[in-house]
Write a protein that binds this DNA or RNA. Sequence first.
DNA 1: CACCGCTACTGTAGCGGTACAGAAGCCCGC
DNA 2: GCGGGCTTCTGTACCGCTACAGTAGCGGTG
Lengths: 404, 404
Amino acid sequence: MPADGPARRPVIPGAGRMPVPDLAVDRIASAPGAARFPESEEHVGRVTLQTVADKVGVSRMTVSNAFSRPDQLSAQLREKILAAADELGYTGPDPSARALARGATGSVGVLLSNSTATAFSDEVASAFFGAIAHTLNESGLALTLLSSEPSGEVVPARDVAMDGVIVYNCDPASGAREQVVRRGLPIVNVDQASEAGTPGVNVADREGARAAARHIVELGHTKVALVTKSGEPPYGIVDPGEADRHRASDGYASIERLAGWTEALEEAGVTPVVYRLPIDAMGGHGAILAEILEAAPDTTAVLAFSDVIAADIVLEAQDSGIDVPGRLSVVGFDDNPLALRLRPQLTTVRQDVSEKGRLAASMLVDAVRSRRAGGDASPAASVTLPTELVIRGSTGPPFEAPGA
Amino acid sequence: MPADGPARRPVIPGAGRMPVPDLAVDRIASAPGAARFPESEEHVGRVTLQTVADKVGVSRMTVSNAFSRPDQLSAQLREKILAAADELGYTGPDPSARALARGATGSVGVLLSNSTATAFSDEVASAFFGAIAHTLNESGLALTLLSSEPSGEVVPARDVAMDGVIVYNCDPASGAREQVVRRGLPIVNVDQASEAGTPGVNVADREGARAAARHIVELGHTKVALVTKSGEPPYGIVDPGEADRHRASDGYASIERLAGWTEALEEAGVTPVVYRLPIDAMGGHGAILAEILEAAPDTTAVLAFSDVIAADIVLEAQDSGIDVPGRLSVVGFDDNPLALRLRPQLTTVRQDVSEKGRLAASMLVDAVRSRRAGGDASPAASVTLPTELVIRGSTGPPFEAPGA
DNA sequence: CACCGCTACTGTAGCGGTACAGAAGCCCGC
DNA sequence: GCGGGCTTCTGTACCGCTACAGTAGCGGTG
């Protein structure tokens, strides 16, 4: 029997929790008779589904459906409800409450390496995020940036509501990634050592680096310097013994690129000079080339971890009268737009970061969707995107010393 | 007496809602990620506070306190609870549930102009986001990127859970900003026409542009072209009548910079040629200069909306044998790192985007905090950051035509 | 006219937490 | 020996919404 009274009223809305209980009670007590609020009817606390339901005289559920499942009620009633909601200033279901009830938040996280600040350091990284954001957006998901570094009591990887996570080039030591795994969220790894069972997107960094080094070797260079990035000291020119020591904190890309270079150089019997740059250096690199040339004056080619670094080296060379590529060949990595802005244009290894972002995002979207559907989605295979050597003007045959 | 029976158990946790209860249970038990927990006791559904509470034999509230308010229980018991939680694979309070109960989500949004993809188009924008992310992170907040464009049924500005919003250079026509206002969230505007009552951060775009134009005028230029950005056609060279028509969709910065330029030029009696570029153009601009010179062959100076555009113009000039600054002076805007990578280095108008981001973020943090504290915080005043003309090598006196 | 299949709406029972107001035990001082 | 002031835990009452299983009404049917 539905006759057992009108729809239930919210129990002293807003009271009991708010810091002003007395006032609230007071208001409630006098509300029925005297509507001293300009608001059409009295209605005190927050506007909720119930508020709207009461106004229209339907059940709360019907209002919910009006917003979230239009096919569940007549168009006519829906209009009426929406109008009432609008009048009350009700904007739609509270996202937090909805997230709890539905078990989905509508946003996914990107877990970044420790410093959120440097994640955007160059155009390439930015293009990657742009692609992710765009792809997610198409699926109606928002993107939340997560630092893998806790701040105070808050550990983003643990405390932020989300439906899935893209783990991007994230120091494994931080433990943030593990946190996400334990939460049982769908994950896609990017630029990250691949892990069994977790889908991931990587680029053929190693192969690209190898191609770059081969290109240099084929041009005839034998005195080669590598400029890489590292998560921990020592920085600068590195002792030969240290040169190919890999540390997880260097970042996956660094490790792979360095490996690719050295593999190809070894094949050719070339032993490079290695210069390590702090991983969070943000351009405006000072005198890298000067240091290299001091340690190895006969260097004729430099392979750099990124185009940004390569550009700095080219400029440093030019500013000190060293011709590129006449006396020094320089190869970058990424095919940053700036490679084309440099004169000579930069020889580099292209990777398609937009595609990387797009792919990672859509893989995650799939994972989130299939989980939501209850399906036990096969953990999508990992993908490796190709790299491509792009030869431009910054490389050429080595300088023949006049005296040779 | 609390002896009236053990704490209540959750009623068939996880069941009754999942579309595929059997499968779901199955999955939990066998999922690769979940399997590695020793699972002391069997326990199927989701692990919640109650699960842990039952295991330790305390109330749910005490477990909650162990995680969220350590000072509310003895260190000893807390340890015990944490250990039990760990053993059960309980990661900590569910963020969604917590958000609902606490009324705070722990993340704030950045509402972007329609295209999330181009928001990151250059290093300057990226630095801005980096600064925001970093500052928020220090306060334990995550950053959620919101497109002002709905996608399907989802309207980010309405449907994403957050505690506050930074509205960044957002097309007012999209209505997204209004949505946020209606939700009653704290707001900080950035690069946005200021609005009464809402705090905001702006830069002195107009003054900076004026300084740039004055610089050009003082060098003696009288044939000047402006390259601006616009949200809608016509693009390219614009009829004189159209030149200073402002449209909200052009973006606040465009409007202000254009205004600054024209003000200063007018003072000097100079009527510029205006070239409009689509607002979402992402660099690699084709033949802007060629078009300008075709329309006004005697142009000796170009004022560009951004350094990226300016750089493209400088390169275009150089590639077609036009000396900069000998025959053409070019001024950018922003003081993008690339301004220093260009040869000659670019004369530009510096704005401190990192500071802009930092400031916007901390203003929002304050607003969110004071709201949470119940305080009805005065709506922090708006701030305008200074700009500064930085004269480098890309500008000089106008070319004296040999025949003159 | 009981029976069926619809559509349109409603009630119940959560989602997984947290705030707040107890209540129990305990040490203190008078 | 008793009220008071801790510290440490517990119970209740929500936060605002959604899933699911009804229940009503209603036209068509055999």
